[in-house]
Design a protein around this nucleic acid. Structure first.
Lengths: 252, 252
DNA sequence: CGAGAAGTTGACGAACCTCAAACGATGTGG
DNA sequence: CCACATCGTTTGAGGTTCGTCAACTTCTCG
């Protein structure tokens, strides 16, 4: 089977054959979870790490007011629950948006793999930096942009991330989010999301319809959104080697 | 001298005498930086770690539109540039809001300390989880709350964080931010910040004046803001031990 | 075919921004 | 010590963006 984790992390590789095998052996323990069910819930004891193999999930939190906020999306290859090593409890939910297949990884196995294969540890660390960078970008999005720009920015981000895992065909991709989901992500009502989507469509930028996104003019869309994909890559690599020799045990 | 780093991390301790000494020896290389100057700038090569000993800084980014967004505040005891181990460049600025004293730590020295003293490594990891939790909380703040609630929430967060490092006297603390800074944090114009501050004052919740915050009714303020300080603590501890024996080298 | 969920549209009001002006504190040079 | 400039704060008027409420339509799936 195609290993989404491997293709994702290999962006930060390259990995040796042995490392690839190690990654493959991490994701043997698969299970399916169904649409709109919880992978974790706020307050759950953090005890496991899950790798998304297929499907679409989100990190979110429900508020006492009845509102819901989405903090991020988990696509194939992404990892949930890396904070198991430190935190005792989850401080947000992880919800399956579509039916998903995830691989359950025992924390001990993951640690052993990281120890044996330093470049895997590094690639994982990198992932968490990207998650943080995405949070900052979302803050910019929420604070400074209008609703249509916000929406355009989110659609750009998802396109770039889905492209990485081979889920964009031409200029079209599947987006299993309702307008309510989009609103809960962008701090908008579903009604206003609807209107903003229409504006993007009438501007000839992008059409969202029937669970699919049709990008008409990616360059104009990115410009409109103020989208710069640098934050999704966090340029830089091969940097760690400087400290490798002096402290082989910790990082590598 | 009082070691802000130590008092901060000791929340996650306790530390042995040896560990305390290790922390003290990390912060010997002090330097002063002046108000409104850059500790790092976006694009700088990430090559050093800095511990804030006194003063007030922020992570921020300037946009081409002329707008500015603040992503977080660095108070005494906080650490800047921990991503040096992975990222090659900074993807945001770190700006001194007041005159500051920071300690420059060589990454190698920090790694060595983390290797020798596992509970220090753990406490640092914890810090970065809190930074991430704060980002999520700010997203909720921006997406779901009105301007006066946002402001109240930020004032609550800063009060709790400053309390930890002994910078709150009674129900008053120094806040060296302009209304423009507050606006750049909360996605508001300084004008609207001004009006919202007046509302908070007239509601008898809190007064911000002359660089000082006077909290009149902390419980009502927290309720008004929907503030729950759990995210600043991230409950959980002693959790790591489960994997310690099998993989002493990586984490501990 | 029917029922529930999701999407669409319009009218109205609230929250927030823009522009403009004035006021107050602070620091500097004469 | 005062005159002045600068920076931050405060207030008002009017416009834009977005939320609320309500009705209606279209999809989806049993």
């Amino acid at each position: 089977m195609h290993n989404a984790l491997r293709s994702k992390l290999e962006r930060f590789g390259p990995f040796s054959g042995e490392e690839k095998n190690a990654l493959d052996s991490l994701i043997l323990n698969k299970r399916s979870i169904s649409r709109r069910s919880y992978l974790f819930q706020e307050g759950d004891s953090a005890s496991t790490v899950d790798v998304v193999l297929s499907g679409f999930l989100c990190r979110s939190r429900g508020l006492s007011s009845g509102d819901r906020q989405i903090f991020g999306y988990l696509l194939p290859g992404d990892i949930a629950g890396l904070n198991v090593f430190i935190a005792r409890r989850m401080d947000y939910d992880i919800v399956a948006i579509t039916d998903c297949v995830v691989a359950n990884v025992r924390p001990e196995a993951l640690l052993a793999t990281m120890e044996a294969h330093p470049s895997i540890a590094k690639a994982l660390w990198w992932q968490s930096l990207i998650v943080e960078a995405v949070l900052r970008e979302w803050i910019v999005n929420l604070a400074l942009r209008r609703s249509d720009e916000r929406l355009a920015h989110l659609l750009c981000e998802l396109m770039v991330r889905l492209e990485r895992v081979g889920l964009v065909k031409g200029s079209t991709y599947e987006l299993p989010l309702t307008q309510q989901d989009l609103g809960d992500t962008l701090g908008l009502t579903s009604i206003h999301v609807n209107r903003s989507l229409r504006e993007l469509r009438e501007a000839g930028l992008v059409t969202v319809k029937g669970g699919k996104v049709f990008v008409h003019d990616i360059e104009r869309l990115k410009r409109f959104a103020g989208f710069d994909d640098a934050y999704l890559h966090l340029s830089g690599d091969g940097h760690l080697e400087r400290w490798k020799q002096s402290n082989p045990a910790i990082i590598e």
